[in-house]
């Protein structure tokens, strides 16, 4: 079930996770190997016909009124790193920000 982790795999994961890991690749490969080796033990568990448990609660959808907290909204805007005229300012998405 499990795979050998190589330097290229770690680099690919770092791109997907958007984390610069330059210079740390070797250590991360070693750590990943050790951790995934520990996880090998799960192979021994028979989980046929067992449903996955995705949360600790047995509660189902909790609906609430769709009220807007204007104070919180304003606070959110104020606490944003960059704003302009009450709008959030972010770097360009479609092209470079120059």
């Amino acid at each position: 079930m499990l795979k050998d982790i190589k330097k290229e795999d770690i680099e690919r994961l770092a791109q997907l996770a958007r984390i610069d890991i330059e210079g740390k690749e070797a250590g991360l490969v070693k750590d990943a190997e050790n951790i995934l080796e520990y996880f090998e033990q799960l192979k021994d568990v028979n989980t046929d016909n067992i449903s996955p448990m995705s949360g600790a609660s047995d509660m189902v959808n909790q609906a609430e009124a769709d009220d807007i907290d204007k104070g919180l909204l304003q606070k959110g805007i104020e606490s944003f790193p960059e704003t302009k005229d009450g709008y959030l300012k972010v770097p360009g998405v479609m092209k470079n920000n120059d």
Binding site: M1, L42, V45, T47, I50, S51, P52, M53, S54
Partner: peptide, 9 residues
């Protein structure tokens, strides 16, 4: 998915 099943157990 395997871990979530083990969690159930």
């Amino acid at each position: 998915a395997k871990a979530q099943k083990v969690r159930q157990l």
